[in-house]
């Protein structure tokens, strides 16, 4: 058995240490928010955070997580109150929605590093694929959430 910390909770798993974190989360821990899209770190649907950094969980073996704090879409807020979640709902960002958990986790990591991101910052750090083509609204959602976070902080 190995324990990892996910969304602030210590969880035990009997998954083999070589199992990618994505499948540990989805099949062993019942957290299906992070999605399987490609398995090769290309599409970003599986994006979670480890210690605040966006990570493509399909490539990260369980053994590499160690004591790192894993955060998934289920841990973004308890009640859809995160400014990114609110912006996503207000702007009707999602179409099929399958890639959006990964988009959101990449976006949140970006906003922590760059509270006032430029378009180029967004392009660089949110390189996830969306086949529905929601990119225009993803970008708008990030800018809207960034503005709200800055306002709340009185910046």
């Amino acid at each position: 058995m190995q324990a990892i910390v996910v969304n602030g909770k210590r969880l035990e798993t009997d998954a083999d240490p070589s199992t990618p974190l994505l499948w540990v989360l989805r099949d062993h821990l019942g957290l299906t928010g992070a999605k399987f899209g490609c398995g090769v770190g290309q599409c970003g649907a599986c994006t979670v955070q480890i210690d605040g950094a966006a990570v493509r969980s399909c490539l990260a073996p369980l053994s590499a997580v160690g004591e790192g704090q894993v955060k998934t879409i289920e841990g973004l807020s308890a009640d859809c109150s995160h400014p990114l979640q609110k912006a996503w709902i207000e702007l009707n960002v999602a179409q099929c929605g399958y890639c959006q958990a990964g988009m959101l986790m990449a976006a949140e990591a970006l906003l922590k590093a760059k509270p006032d991101p430029t378009d180029a910052d967004i392009d660089a750090m949110v390189s996830n694929i969306c086949r529905c083509g929601t990119y225009v609204r993803v970008r708008a959602g990030i800018h809207r959430a960034a503005a709200e976070i800055r306002k709340t902080r009185g910046a």
């Binding site: 879409i73 859809c80 999602a94 958990a101």
Partner: peptide
């Protein structure tokens, strides 16, 4: 407001 939007952004939507 699109139906089901909250479930998409909190990860509880079931595909």
């Amino acid at each position: 407001g699109k139906l089901g939007a909250a479930k998409v952004v909190d990860g509880s939507a079931v595909y």
